[in-house]
């Protein structure tokens, strides 16, 4: 597969959130603002790239029967690393993301890529696949984060947009997370339907 195709599938045609519907919990919980969304996306991307690389390197040594447990240990190791790095260098993001940083361990996207890609492919493609899927996750989170921050709090990256008035403050609440994601995925499905309709 060409590099361009890997990235196109990770970010657009096989986007982990909008198309594969994986990783819902962090998507909903950390998309209240753009900066949190990008922080979460990049942390998960880092874990995804590192775990894909290590799992691909070890794919001939990990016994078939305990492979899932081994993947979880590898992923948890990198998550602990990210947790400590964020606490040391990006304390405000660390505080805002809270328990969702250790919960990257149980993000289905990462385990899904380990099982379906890294365990069967060579190191370089696995790294690229991790990067592409991670960026797809980050893009999805950033779109949702931007929508919720602009409409829900009336700010973008902390700057006031509408003179301190939030147009749709419900989007900043938990219920608004479900609502915004529902509409964004509906828009994605609509575009896919229209594209398919045009092709027929």
């Amino acid at each position: 597969m060409k590099i361009k195709d890997i990235f196109k599938s990770g970010i657009i045609t096989d986007n982990p959130v909008f198309i594969q519907l994986l990783g819902m919990c962090p998507t909903l919980a950390t998309s209240t603002s753009l900066i949190n969304a990008i922080g979460m996306g990049l942390s998960a991307t880092f874990v995804l790239v590192c775990s894909n690389m290590l799992i691909s390197l070890l794919r001939k040594f990990i016994p078939q029967k305990i492979r899932i447990a081994s993947y979880i240990v590898i992923i948890a190791g990198f998550v602990t690393l990210v947790d400590m790095l964020l606490e040391a260098f990006f304390y405000s993001i660390y505080n805002a993301l809270g328990v969702f940083i250790p919960l990257i361990v149980v993000n289905c996207i990462i385990l899904a890529r380990a099982e379906s890609f890294a365990s069967k492919n060579k190191v370089l493609p696995s790294i690229l696949d991790g990067l592409a899927m991670g960026l797809g996750f980050t893009v999805a989170l950033a779109i949702l984060g931007a929508i919720r921050e602009v409409l829900g709090s009336g700010t973008i990256l902390g700057f006031e947009l509408f003179g301190g008035v939030a147009p749709l403050s419900v989007l900043a609440l938990p219920a608004g997370g479900f609502l915004a994601l529902g509409f964004v995925i509906a828009a994605a499905q609509h575009l896919i339907n229209r594209k398919r309709g045009g092709a027929d």
Partner: peptide, 10 residues
């Protein structure tokens, strides 16, 4: 466009 997952989210 809302069938399946989107309507569940809403």
């Amino acid at each position: 466009a809302f069938q399946g997952f989107p309507i569940a989210l809403i």
